[in-house]
Design a protein around this nucleic acid. Structure first.
Lengths: 228, 228
DNA sequence: CCTAAGTGGAGTGATTTCCTCCGCTTATCT
DNA sequence: AGATAAGCGGAGGAAATCACTCCACTTAGG
C-alpha cells in the first residue's frame, strides 16, 4: 500500500526508516491526544521535519490509513499464528485473547473506526485483512465447540467482542498483570463447564460480516460490531 | 458543588434547567468528539447561547469537573443501591456489573481521568464518592466470597477493573444486547465453580486506594487502576 | 565523486476558538 | 399586575492554532 507511487520505485533506505518512525509516532500521539494532533507534533515526535511528513503522507487521512493498516495487520498475525501454532482450538483461542491485550490501541481504535469503515467499503486491502481475522476467529470458535471445550451458546461475534474490548482498552490504564487477570476471567467464563445460559442469541459470523457492510451511522449508534 | 456561588443563593429555576442541559450536552459531545469540542458547539447542542455557558462555567475545566462529578455520582448510586436492594452479595455484584454497562462514558472516562485525578487530590467531594464506590465494591466482594459464591482468588480490584472496562467502552460501539452477553460471560468467570487459578495475586482494596494517591504519570503509564 | 532522492523548518495565509459586552427577556416576589 | 433582579443570546474582535509550500542544503547509493 505505498500510496500513489509509480510501481517499481522503492523508497530509499533512510526514507523508509523515516516513514516508519512517522507512523509509529502517529500511532502513539493519535492514541494519547486524539486524531487531531497537529501534524507538526507528529513530525517532531518522529524526529523529522514537517516537510518530510507531508511528502510521505499528503494529508492526515493518508497517515490515518497507514496507522489503521498497521494495527489491523498485527491483529491478523496474532489470530493466524495462534491458529497455526497451537495444538488445539481452545488453546488457540486463549492465546489469541491473551495476545489481544498487547495491541491495546485504546481509544484510538474507537476514533479510527469511522475512518476505517470508509476504507473497508472502498475495498482497500484492509478489507482482506479483516476477512482473514474473521475467518480465523470463526474457525477457532467452531473447532473449540466441536471439541467441547468452548461453551455452546457462544458465537464468533462474542469472541470478537471480547477481543475488541481488550484492544480498545487504553494501555495507559490497567497494568499488564491486571489485564492478564481479566482475560483469564473471561476465558473461565467461556469454558464449556461455565455457568448458566447467556441472554439473547450467540453473535454469529454473519453478524460480524454484516457489520462491515453497514453504513456508518454518525451518532445513531446502535447494535454494531466494531473492530480496529 | 456549585462552583463559587455566594452560599445561600439558589439558581433560578430556568437557569438551573439550562445548567443541566449544558452538562448533558457536554457529556455527549465530549464523548463523541473529544474533550476539545468548541464550547460554542456545546452551547448550540444544549440550545443555549455561548454567553449562558460561559456565565455558568467560567472555563472548560469547570465544565469538565461537572461532567466528571455527574458520572461518578451515577456510578456510586449504582453500587450502593445494588448493595442495599439485593438480597445477597452475589446478586448485588451481578447487578452492579450489569448496570455498569449503562454508564458507558467510553473514551471520555479515559480522557477525563487525568483531570479527575487532579481533583481527587484536591479533595473535592469527588474524593468521597470515590471512596464510597470502593467501599461498596469491597463489601460485595468480601461477602460474596464468604457466601462461597464468588471465587476466592479475586480481589475487589479485579471487580473494579471489570467494571471499568465496561464503563470505558464507548456506547456507540457494541449494542446493548451484545454488551449484556459480555457481562454474563464475565460473571460466569467469576463464579466460585469456575476454571483454574488466575495468574498473579488478587487486586486488593488497597491497590485500589493506593491508586488514588499516586501521581499521574503523563505517559509513563504502568500499573494503574483507574475509574471514571 | 556525482546526482537524484531526500530533508528540514521558517513563513504565510486561512481557519478556528475564545470570551466579552450589552440590549432584551423572563422568573419570582409582593 | 408590576417591579426588578436574574438570566439570556449571539455579534464580533483579538488571539491562537494549523496546514501546507518552498527551496537551499544534505546524503544514499551506484
Amino acid at each position: 500500500m505505498e500510496s500513489h507511487r509509480p510501481a517499481g520505485t522503492e523508497l530509499r533506505a533512510d526514507a523508509r526508516r523515516n516513514r516508519d518512525l512517522i507512523v509509529a509516532a502517529a500511532q502513539k500521539l493519535f492514541l494519547e491526544q486524539g486524531l487531531d494532533v497537529p501534524l507538526e507534533e507528529v513530525a517532531r515526535r518522529a524526529g523529522v521535519g514537517v516537510g518530510t511528513l507531508y511528502r510521505r503522507f499528503p494529508d492526515r487521512d493518508a497517515l490515518l490509513r497507514a496507522v489503521s493498516e498497521e494495527g489491523l495487520r498485527r491483529l491478523m498475525d496474532l489470530a493466524e499464528t495462534a491458529l497455526r501454532e497451537e495444538p488445539d482450538a481452545w488453546h488457540a483461542l486463549c492465546r489469541f485473547l491473551r495476545a489481544s491485550v498487547e495491541i491495546r490501541l485504546g481509544a484510538l481504535s474507537a476514533k479510527l473506526e469511522p475512518h476505517l469503515h470508509q476504507r473497508l467499503r472502498a475495498g482497500a486491502d484492509l478489507h482482506e485483512m479483516r476477512q482473514r481475522v474473521i475467518a480465523a476467529v470463526l474457525r477457532m470458535t467452531e473447532r473449540a465447540q466441536a471439541d467441547g471445550t468452548l461453551r455452546g451458546d457462544i458465537g464468533p461475534g462474542d469472541i470478537a467482542l471480547l477481543m475488541t474490548l481488550n484492544v480498545y482498552t487504553p494501555p495507559s490504564m490497567p497494568g499488564e498483570q491486571a489485564m492478564a487477570r481479566v482475560v483469564e476471567i473471561m476465558l473461565s467464563g467461556l469454558r464449556a463447564d461455565s455457568g448458566r445460559a447467556l441472554p439473547g442469541a450467540p453473535l454469529t459470523g454473519d453478524d460480524l460480516r454484516r457489520y462491515t457492510a453497514v453504513e456508518h451511522p454518525s451518532d445513531a449508534g446502535d447494535e454494531r460490531l466494531p473492530d480496529p
